[in-house]
C-alpha cells in the first residue's frame, strides 16, 4: 500500500508550489504514471482524500491520473520506445523490442510525475 506514501509525497510538493504562488486553494493536481508503476489509481485517490481531508488549502481538490504508454529500452540494440506488443503470454512484462525483436529489454518505468497544478490565487 505504497499509494499512501506517494499521495503524501504529492501533497508535500504541491503544498510548497501553492505557497510559492500565494495560492488560497489547490483545485486540481494532474499526475502521470507508467502502466507498470505499480500504482493502483483508486487507492492513490483514496489515500489523497485521507491526507487532504483536513487541509484547508486542498479542500474539494481533485487528483487526476494519466496513464502513459509503456516504454522499453532494448539491451540488444539500445532502441527506446513503446514495445511492439504488450507483453508475452508466457512471461509478463517481458516486452519485445519494436526495432530488433529481442525480448532482452529493460522496462523503462517513468515514475509518477506531477504534471500540472491548478491553483486559485487571490488577485
Amino acid at each position: 500500500m505504497h499509494e499512501y506514501s506517494l499521495a503524501s509525497a504529492i501533497v508535500e510538493q504541491v503544498k510548497k508550489i501553492a505557497l510559492g504562488h500565494n495560492a488560497s486553494k489547490v483545485k486540481t493536481i494532474t499526475v502521470s504514471a507508467d502502466p507498470y508503476e505499480m500504482v493502483i489509481p483508486d487507492l492513490l485517490k483514496e489515500a489523497y482524500g485521507i491526507i487532504t481531508d483536513e487541509l484547508e488549502l486542498f479542500k474539494d481538490s481533485k487528483l487526476e491520473l494519466l496513464i502513459l504508454p509503456a516504454e522499453i529500452i532494448c539491451i540488444d540494440c539500445d532502441h527506446k520506445g513503446e514495445p511492439s506488443i504488450e507483453g508475452d503470454d508466457e512471461f509478463a512484462y517481458n516486452f519485445k523490442c519494436a526495432k530488433c525483436g529481442s525480448r532482452d529489454t529493460h522496462l523503462n518505468i517513468r515514475h509518477l510525475t506531477i504534471e500540472t497544478v491548478d491553483l486559485e490565487i487571490p488577485e
Binding site: 506517494l6 509525497a9 504529492i10 508535500e12 510538493q13 504541491v14 508550489i17 504562488h21 495560492a23 488560497s24 486553494k25 483545485k27 499526475v31 515514475h111 509518477l112 510525475t113 506531477i114 504534471e115 500540472t116 497544478v117 491548478d118 491553483l119 486559485e120 490565487i121 487571490p122 488577485e123
Partner: peptide, 18 residues
C-alpha cells in the same frame, strides 16, 4: 476576487526521496 492559474510542474512524486 481570485484567479485560476495552471502551473506546469513536471516533477516526479518521488523527487524528494530520489
Amino acid at each position: 476576487m481570485t484567479q485560476e492559474k495552471k502551473i506546469t510542474v513536471k516533477k516526479q512524486a518521488y523527487l524528494v526521496n530520489d
